[in-house]
Amino acid sequence: MDPLKNSDCQKQKADYQPQGKQCGRREFLKGAARVAAMGGAAMLTGCGTDMFGSKEERSLRFKEYFKKNYRLMTQEEKEQTVRRLERLAKIRNKVDVQMSTKEPIEGVLFGYAFNVTRCEGFMECVAACVKENNLDRKSNTQYIRIFEMEHGQMSPEAGDGKYFHQVPVEDHFYMGVQCFHCESAPCIKACPTKATWKEPDGIVVVDYDWCIGCRYCMAACPYYGRRFNWNDPVVPKEEMTKKQHYLGNRMRAKGQMEKCTFCVQRSREGRLPACVEACPTGSRVFGNLLDPKSEIRFVLKHKKVFRFKEDLGTDPKFWYFID
């Protein structure tokens, strides 16, 4: 397609030519690895057989293990890790993914608004989010929660987040909750390894590979905005979104924290997050807070807006409004 991607592909090919020559040896190595696996399996019961891949896989995983925090990587190192991850996805799951490291666009600060009056609780946003962000189907991970609420209250705490019936229900309204990308986010302060941070465009992201899985950020978040990979996430190959971002919807592994990224893989390309695009009622508004002509600025200016748990001083970039 675009020239940038084409040159990437060529680079990738060039990178792996040397390994291509060793193809003859690969069979032997596979056999050797299998023997080693059988011998080692008794000792390393817990590590599973996927410890022992091909030589190429092991070398890639070795380099991945020792890579730096994403924020400390040079652009070249970012490219390298992305190529490695693409190759690993090909080897292990036989999928072709295209992973981006696209930087934030200058002069952009993302914000979100949710129309409490319009939402009818169809949960199309949830389904779109699960699909777009490659969320674990096994544990049914969801970034977005929709609460069905009776009139007379304005906090999801009083609502029902597990409703399963035909919507909308009379005399009820619906309120969506997800990561609010707080300007002063407690999760960022809590992380002992700086594996989670706020990008210049306001998106709070996680470097999945840098996260040690202590879950202190989860305890610190007052909005239930974070999710942990209790098991190795499972996404059927044919349902996987292959256009990925390093900080976004690439595949996570067990023991890592993850969260809503305002679909960084889409929003930085100028597209709307999957939830906004999927919403059939137009309850979701997303845009650039620094652009006076954006829809989100219109909402903030002309609607009565409020934020959830404002008393905590987290300064979320997510507003609710009423028509």
Binding site: A190, T193, W210, I212
Partner: peptide, 23 residues
């Protein structure tokens, strides 16, 4: 309790990042 005990080296100042005094 850690999800990634093998990544504990990420905490070692110098080779990793030690988010002190914030965390």
């Amino acid at each position: 309790d850690l999800g990634g005990p093998l990544k504990l080296w990420h905490l070692i100042p110098g080779i990793g990042i030690f988010n002190w005094p914030s965390s």
